[in-house]
Amino acid sequence: MKTFRCSCDNKQLLFFESSSCVSCQRVVGLDDAFNKVEPYDFDEESGCYFKARRPAARYQKCDNNADYNVCNGMVNLDDLVPEDGNDEVLCFACRFNETVPDLSIVEHIPLWKKMEAAKRRALYTLKALSLPLRNLRQDPENGLSFDFTTDRDVNDHFVSKLDYSESVFTGHDCGHITINLAEADDVARSQTKYAMNERYRTLLGHFRHELGHYYFDQLIVGSEKKNALSKECFGDDELDYQESLKKYYENKPADNWRDEFISEYATMHPYEDWAETWAHYMHIMDTLETAKNFSITGSITGDAADAEETDELNLPQDSKFFYSQTSITSVLDAWMEFSVILNSLNRSMGMNDAYPFVLSQPVRKKLSFIHHAIHNKFSLIKS
């Protein structure tokens, strides 16, 4: 993820999640272009915000920003198209929400803020990759939407079932993604992680995994050729899903699953293999962008000549990083080097490896398929 700078005298560093400049105290945020965190000045006469470089355009904080401080979205009032019977002012990211948590329960609000932060980061990478990204108002048939809700009590870390509440399962259904609010609670998520013997379980990971299912429908389904290529890489997605799910939970995956899959869950069904691989592709892209932003990618040995070789990745400020011309081989090679650095840093802090996964050759092939599917370069896929 990129960092940004305020226009104040100190040129204060701004992060993707920043909502104010710690130096000049001005409001900062993201507009609908969704690619830059920048400062806004307040005009007392109009009661609106404006950018110094675009003084004529008037902005307002997203309602979820102004009322709950759960996002940092800003809305250009000139571009706002009010919906019938709905006077909400929502930013680019918040327009994807269909259901938000019960806000009469104040303990839900900080967890919702975590949900929104993870969602914005996931959407940012999708937008930077120029993937189709439309909400239900823009595309009622194929648009993307989110439900954030729960069926359990926040006060005991989501152990107790709420009365008269339907079960809430994190998942994807025809463009509609549901994330249980419990996933934003560190205690509840950790309990589930260890109960299911998972090596990695994060809120951002959930978003990216479920978005993988959505983009399988958008990029692969509907094309006989693309679907056939996907089957060659991930397996037959027409296998009975419920039967595969049953077998997965009844039988432990073979000990050599790492030879072919990025995670144990990826062994369950080709759909899940795709979604897990998609999520890892997004993790890799976002993390390498962040690393290059702080100039900490390059050779493990620190050799200057080797470090220069990674410049072909154009990470991250050069938008070519997200172009189809970027070599997936160079991306994965850089990731293998940097993940060693990343894990070593974690160990120095007494923490578990940040990336405890193996990129075997079959997994690299699957990541390459994802890369070419995103950029619609199927002709470059090697059998």
Rank of each mutant, 00 (worst) to 15 (best):
Met1Tyr: 10
Asp9Leu: 12
Leu14Gly: 01
Cys24Gly: 11
Ala33Phe: 07
Ala33Gly: 06
Asn35Ile: 14
Lys36Leu: 14
Val37Ser: 02
Val37Met: 03
Val37Tyr: 00
Val37His: 00
Val37Pro: 01
Asp43Cys: 13
Gly47Ala: 12
Cys48Phe: 15
Phe50Tyr: 15
Ala52Met: 07
Ala56Ser: 10
Lys61Val: 00
Cys62Trp: 03
Asp63Ser: 10
Asp67Met: 10
Gly73Met: 03
Val75Glu: 00
Asn76Leu: 14
Asn76Trp: 01
Val81Glu: 07
Glu83Asp: 14
Asp84Phe: 12
Gly85Thr: 11
Glu88Arg: 13
Val100Phe: 10
His108Val: 01
Pro110Lys: 11
Lys113Asn: 00
Lys113Tyr: 04
Glu116Ser: 13
Ala117Phe: 09
Ala117Thr: 14
Ala117Gln: 13
Ala117Asp: 09
Ala118Val: 05
Lys119Trp: 05
Lys119Ser: 04
Arg120Leu: 08
Arg120Met: 15
Arg121Asp: 02
Ala122Met: 05
Tyr124Ile: 01
Leu126Asn: 12
Asn135Leu: 04
Ser145Gln: 09
Ser145Ala: 15
Phe146Asp: 01
Asp147Leu: 04
Phe148Asp: 00
Asp151Asn: 09
Arg152Ile: 05
Asn155Asp: 05
Phe158Asp: 00
Thr170Ala: 14
Gly171Pro: 06
Gly171Thr: 04
Gly171Asn: 05
Val187Ser: 07
Lys193Ile: 12
Lys193Asp: 03
Tyr194Met: 13
Asn197Thr: 13
Tyr200Glu: 13
Leu204Glu: 14
His206Cys: 07
Arg208Lys: 12
Glu210Tyr: 06
His213Gln: 14
Tyr215Leu: 09
Gln218Tyr: 04
Ile220Thr: 04
Ile220Phe: 04
Val221Cys: 13
Ser223His: 08
Asn227Gly: 11
Ser230Met: 15
Lys231Pro: 00
Tyr241Ser: 09
Glu243His: 09
Glu250His: 14
Lys252Arg: 15
Pro253Tyr: 06
Ala254Phe: 09
Asn256Ile: 09
Phe261Asn: 02
Ile262Arg: 00
Glu264His: 07
Glu264Gln: 15
Ala266Asp: 03
Ala266Lys: 01
Met268Gln: 12
Pro270Met: 07
Trp274Ala: 06
Met282Thr: 04
Met282Trp: 05
His283Cys: 05
Asp286Ile: 06
Thr287Tyr: 08
Leu288Tyr: 02
Glu289Tyr: 04
Thr290Arg: 12
Thr297Ile: 11
Ala307His: 07
Glu308Asp: 15
Thr310Ser: 14
Asp311Met: 11
Asn314Ser: 12
Asn314Thr: 02
Leu315Phe: 11
Thr326Ser: 13
Ile328Ser: 10
Thr329Lys: 12
Ser330Asn: 11
Ser330Gln: 08
Val331Asp: 08
Leu332Met: 11
Asp333Glu: 15
Asp333Cys: 08
Trp335Leu: 09
Trp335Glu: 06
Met336Asn: 15
Phe338Tyr: 15
Ser339His: 05
Val340Asp: 12
Ile341Gly: 03
Ile341Ala: 09
Ser344Trp: 09
Leu345Met: 15
Leu345Pro: 00
Leu345Phe: 13
Gly350Arg: 07
Gly350Ile: 13
Met351Phe: 13
Tyr355Gln: 08
Tyr355Ala: 12
Phe357Thr: 04
Val358Arg: 02
Val358Gln: 05
Leu359Gln: 11
Arg364Asp: 01
Ala373His: 03
His375Ser: 08
Ser379Pro: 02
Ser383Pro: 07
